[in-house]
Amino acid sequence: MDAKKVNGSGNGSKGSSEWRVKVGLAEMLKGGVIMDVTNAEQAKIAEKAGACAVMALERVPSDIRKEGGVARMASIKVIREIMATVTIPVMAKVRIGHFVEAEVLQALEVDFIDESEVLTPADEENHIWKHDYRVPFVCGARNLGEALRRIAEGAAMIRTKGEAGSGNVVEAVRHMRTIVSQMKKLTTMRDDELMREAKELGAPLDLIRQVAKTGKLPVPNFSAGGIATPADAALVRKLGAEAVFVGSGIFKSSDPETRAKAVVKATTHFEDPKIVLEAHEELGEAMKGLDIRQMEEKDMLSTRGW
């Protein structure tokens, strides 16, 4: 066994077939909504409403927040049931740095792994070396440096962290605006300025140069964390998100089925306010949100990971 490859058996290096099908699946999810579900019944509702994938987990982020304790990878039984129930891709979360949870989910053959700050980190220094896996990974990011570090480790998709389980879109907006404006800035820089920027952002120079050339991340860029209404979904799409993750927002609302459908509709038609209006017409009460400014640093999930 190759001494460097301790985590798995894959060969996901850039440009390889494996890397291309990993980013390829992320491409297929564009324009869609990925919904958090905690059982097969919710997964079925999500699929019927038009979700392009589901995220299987034991508790939605707002419950994790409320109940406290250590949040880990979901029970295999629950993930299996969800995989057996829907035909759309099934994602599941692992703790930051917990590469054995990732090996387990790969053995289970989930379609995507989220190395997520929503769960309690298993390693406060290191993230998973994701190139070693055949299953693609998505990781959260608050800024461009963080996004590019995760991509360098092998993430095939980036999502803003937002503030999961808050029902408050403010952090998702902040993170998306930050990433987009940092990318824009790179495109205006001279070659000799890019090294300093790589140092400032703490990101690999080759990826910095790539973004400077294209103005885009080299992998799809989605939004997550606090999206609770169709208008929230359309807002992050307008700010540059290529697809949307909705966690607690659906199944913590008074009307999951209608809301799921409405968010899907607004995500696709984000450029047409009349259709976003239609999506809002039938809705009941959204989940109760949290004021981020009243929250203490230790309660913020988005500060987990680096």
């Binding site: 297929m28 699929e47 409403a49 038009g50 979700a51 392009c52 994938a53 035909t87 759309i88 899907v264």
Partner: peptide, 9 residues
């Protein structure tokens, strides 16, 4: 490409 169930909707 994408999810046919979503597109069909």
């Amino acid at each position: 490409g994408g999810e046919s169930t979503t597109q069909l909707q």
